[in-house]
Simulated assay, not measured.
Amino acid sequence: MVKLNTQKIINGIENSFLKTDLPILKIGDNVKVGVKIIEGNKERVQFYEGTIIAKKNSLINTTITVRKIFQGIGIERIFLIHSPKIDSIQVLRSSKVRRSKLYYLRKLKGKASRLKQTFS
């Protein structure tokens, strides 16, 4: 009985921190994520642009893994989308995919790693 009440309290607190202005994110979307960077006493927004290759849903702990190619090297970064450090998420393009995780893109290079774009 006590465990049930504490879970309700925890869920209530977590729900107050959830962001409501997020776009619908799908696997294969090309996104632009604005991350707040603090340098000394200044704060700025740095954008990270890439393809969502994985998504993990668990309320406040929802994460997306974004992959981009920089100077021929693949870079992946995991973002906690409800984090206060995430300023904005913008969907640039959507792609047609048939997998829930696109880890196979790690092995592909160049034109082979492109995804078929959907127009909607």
Results as ranks from 00 to 15, higher is better:
residue 25 L to T: 02
residue 40 G to C: 13
residue 40 G to F: 09
residue 83 S to D: 11
residue 86 I to A: 12
residue 80 L to M: 12
residue 28 G to F: 03
residue 86 I to Y: 08
residue 26 K to V: 03
residue 79 F to Q: 08
residue 30 N to L: 15
residue 93 R to V: 02
residue 34 G to F: 11
residue 72 G to Y: 05
residue 50 G to M: 06
residue 68 K to N: 09
residue 18 L to T: 06
residue 3 K to Q: 15
residue 6 T to L: 09
residue 18 L to G: 10
residue 33 V to T: 09
residue 52 I to P: 02
residue 66 V to E: 01
residue 92 L to A: 02
residue 44 R to P: 00
residue 37 I to Y: 00
residue 94 S to H: 10
residue 4 L to A: 10
residue 19 K to M: 08
residue 5 N to C: 10
residue 86 I to D: 11
residue 18 L to I: 11
residue 98 R to L: 03
residue 117 Q to E: 08
residue 75 I to A: 06
residue 92 L to M: 08
residue 71 Q to S: 12
residue 3 K to A: 14
residue 41 N to R: 13
residue 70 F to A: 07
residue 61 N to C: 06
residue 119 F to R: 13
residue 67 R to S: 04
residue 61 N to I: 02
residue 80 L to C: 11
residue 73 I to L: 08
residue 23 P to H: 04
residue 81 I to G: 06
residue 10 I to S: 07
residue 103 Y to F: 06
residue 43 E to F: 12
residue 89 I to D: 06
residue 78 I to L: 07
residue 91 V to H: 00
residue 100 S to G: 11
residue 6 T to A: 10
residue 70 F to S: 09
residue 106 R to T: 03
residue 13 I to A: 10
residue 98 R to P: 01
residue 11 N to C: 03
residue 74 G to R: 06
residue 50 G to S: 10
residue 9 I to N: 08
residue 25 L to N: 02
residue 81 I to A: 08
residue 33 V to R: 12
residue 39 E to D: 12
residue 118 T to F: 02
residue 69 I to F: 03
residue 48 Y to H: 15
residue 85 K to R: 12
residue 27 I to C: 07
residue 35 V to T: 15
residue 113 S to D: 11
residue 9 I to R: 13
residue 120 S to R: 07
residue 29 D to I: 12
residue 31 V to L: 05
residue 86 I to C: 12
residue 2 V to I: 06
residue 48 Y to Q: 13
residue 23 P to T: 03
residue 7 Q to G: 04
residue 44 R to C: 09
residue 4 L to N: 11
residue 111 K to V: 10
residue 19 K to F: 04
residue 97 V to W: 00
residue 17 F to E: 11
residue 88 S to G: 04
residue 68 K to D: 00
residue 28 G to L: 05
